[in-house]
């Protein structure tokens, strides 16, 4: 694709998956807030437009052959990829983060008061995400597979459930943004213990994986599923 100043960040991230790393490096939101022109996103983050276009093109040339083009792969493969690469690791990671957040807040909370809030956010995010993934895996994803397979027996209208999932993504995104803010970009103090450091490393990784995960759902899976489902033009 040709990248212009008005090409949106989410379009670029969808068609050129390697661009995601470039956006992450500059803190540019390519998932929930990705529906903005590249020039506007660059202006907001004080990034040079020509420089970022060059970086995106360079990243695309060195493309990993394993990176599939999810805009054309069958939806059931994209769903399997999302569940296997993001949902399953999250189910292991969230309890680990909860344990560390609770311990760090208990031991260091009096010295660094924001750790209590970090703990509360981690617990809220963890509960929300586990319920959210369950709803996707047991209800929405099977419904999308049925639409793709043309299985009328399982037909359910997709627009409303997708709106709910997008809203939950946005809420999780807001919690992650708050975490980044109150932890000063996951910067640990000099005196931080190993658990404290591991917690911040784990949270930074969670944030980065969540951005790609939500991008795959909001910008690729959901629009493609809606385009396949009957009456998709009615979506307000």
């Amino acid at each position: 694709m040709t990248i212009g100043e008005h090409t949106t960040v989410s379009e670029i991230a969808s068609t050129m998956p390697s661009s995601v790393r470039v956006f992450q490096r500059h803190g540019i939101d390519f998932c929930c807030g990705g529906n903005v022109g590249l020039a506007d996103a660059c202006a907001k983050h004080g990034v040079d437009l020509d420089g970022i276009v060059a970086a995106i093109e360079a990243a695309a040339e060195g493309k990993n052959p394993d990176e599939r083009d999810w805009t054309v792969e069958p939806l059931h493969r994209l769903i399997d990829h999302i569940v296997g690469t993001y949902h399953e690791p999250l189910r292991e990671e969230l309890p680990r983060l909860e344990t560390m957040a609770a311990k760090v807040a208990r031991v260091h909370g009096s010295k660094a008061s924001h750790l209590k809030r970090v703990e509360a956010i981690v617990f809220e995010l963890s509960a929300d995400l586990r319920t959210h993934m369950r709803k996707e895996e047991s209800i929405l994803f099977p419904a999308i597979r049925a639409v793709e397979d043309g299985d009328g027996r399982l037909h359910v209208p997709l627009p409303a459930p997708i709106m709910v999932m997008e809203d939950e993504h946005e809420y999780a995104g807001a919690l992650l943004a708050e975490l980044r803010k109150i932890t000063d970009g996951y910067t640990t103090p000099d005196w931080a213990c190993m658990t404290f450091r591991s917690l911040y490393d784990g949270l930074a990784e969670l944030e980065s994986a969540m951005h790609v995960h939500v991008h795959l759902e909001n910008n690729i899976l959901f629009p493609r599923a809606l385009a396949l489902s009957p009456g998709h033009a009615e979506r307000g």
Binding site: T131, K135, I139, L140, A143, V156, P157, A160, P161, M163, V164, D167, Y171
Partner: peptide, 17 residues
């Protein structure tokens, strides 16, 4: 008719819309 109606509260759907 939404499949998520049994799982979302009134407060939550107000936020969605």
């Amino acid at each position: 008719g939404c499949v998520f109606a049994p799982f979302e509260t009134v407060a939550e759907v107000a936020r969605v819309y």
